[in-house]
């Protein structure tokens, strides 16, 4: 059967370096030209196509990539991923309105805050396994939201308004409706995240995560410091979520605890599961489809969560590896299979 994932990997592996560069540049060019397709059948009835591309699509892609490090690579079910998104967004909101710092200066701070939160949560939670981790992280996500809701010093239920847009770079102005510029900015973050994950995947960290996902006890007994690598997965995942939060806040310019419910965690989980846990391209595709379709098709947009819940159940039962599964293929070794 034709397998797109394996076919793509094959083409990539057989290509020489300059061809690879060309393929990558081509892909980036296609991605970058997406916002130029506005005004076509791609327009959505709910919101302007350009803005849908920025949120939810691009933000979903970033978060799904981050969550994929935790769930897809390391097999840790994190149901409170929205907390890191919220922490990034609130860092942006608070520092942006109360200090003179601009979005680019706040971005690393927001990432650091989210990573710190990942550490604080990870140290107790990652001693537990599977189910318990899921519940604890779910609780953490809710604690963050309820705290934001009840602390009037950070806006309480009203949230934070008047968050500044990013400052002009190279004469490009981040006005509220300059969706293209936002999209390209987010695309850079997406590319950086992809770079990070691919880099780590083929090295020690990637193998450690993979071994933990497949058999944690065996990993520990083969000398893998499992706890440390689980913490790393958590913290890196958190950093990506935090970055998404900062960007989101400096795009919407208004945030409130309502933006950070458990449902966001579930939506992102659905993107990862639908696309294919552990495979970057699958996850990206999943996030694009699940980010875009509910806005495109009215019927789904009302029952968005219902559909996403059903996606989780159906995918797990019928195609647990997602639409683009992780690598299953092995190199063919001519003439070496006789002694089986």
């Amino acid at each position: 059967m034709f397998n797109l994932r394996d076919w793509g990997a094959d083409v990539w592996e057989r290509s020489s370096r300059p061809i690879r560069v060309l393929i990558a540049l081509g892909a980036i060019a296609i991605a970058a030209s997406l916002p130029l397709l506005g005004g076509t059948f791609l327009n959505t009835p709910v919101a302007d196509y350009g803005s849908v591309l920025v949120f939810p699509v691009a933000i979903f892609v970033i978060m799904a990539l981050g969550l994929n490090i935790v769930i897809g690579k390391s097999g840790l079910l994190d149901l409170g991923y929205v907390a890191f998104f919220a922490i990034g967004a609130y860092t942006m909101g608070l520092l942006g309105t109360k200090t003179g710092l601009n979005s680019w200066e706040i971005l690393p701070i927001g990432i650091a805050m989210a990573m710190f939160a990942g550490l604080i949560l990870g140290v107790p939670a990652l001693r537990l396994r599977g189910d318990y981790l899921a519940i604890i992280t779910l609780g953490f996500g809710e604690i963050v939201r309820i705290t934001a809701l009840n602390l009037n010093s950070i806006g309480g239920a009203n949230g934070i308004v008047g968050i500044p847009t990013p400052p002009t770079v190279f004469g490009l102005e981040y006005t509220f409706d300059n969706h293209r510029l936002y999209f390209w900015t987010f695309l850079i973050i997406i590319l950086l995240t992809i770079w990070m994950i691919r880099r780590l995947s083929v090295r020690r960290a990637g193998r450690a995560w993979e071994s933990i996902r497949q058999d944690e006890d065996a990993a520990e007994l083969m000398g893998v410091p499992t706890f440390r690598y689980k913490i790393w997965a958590f913290v890196l995942g958190a950093s990506v979520g935090g970055a998404a939060g900062v960007l989101y806040a400096s795009k919407t310019l208004f945030i409130s605890p309502d933006n950070f419910t458990l449902q966001v965690s579930i939506l992102i989980l659905a993107c990862v599961v639908f696309g294919g846990m552990g495979n970057i391209w699958g996850v990206i595709l999943g996030a694009i489809i699940l980010g875009y379709l509910p806005d495109r098709i009215r019927f789904i947009s009302d029952a968005r969560l219902l559909v996403f819940g059903a996606v989780l159940v159906l995918m797990m039962n019928l195609r647990p590896d997602g639409i683009l599964p992780r690598k299953k293929r092995e190199k063919a070794l001519p003439g070496k299979n006789q002694n089986e």
């Binding site: 780590l200 090295r203 020690r204 960290a205 193998r207 450690a208 993979e210 071994s211 497949q214 058999d215 006890d217 065996a218 990993a219 083969m222 000398g223 893998v224 690598y229 790393w232 992780r326 299953k328 092995e330």
Partner: peptide, 24 residues
């Protein structure tokens, strides 16, 4: 208790990581 979704070579390399100086 091998890691079934890794190649034989990757299984062994993961074990050799035990003594690597370089980390994440």
């Amino acid at each position: 208790r091998l890691w079934g979704d890794m190649t034989a070579l990757e299984n062994v390399i993961t074990a050799t990581d035990t003594h690597k100086k370089s980390g994440l």
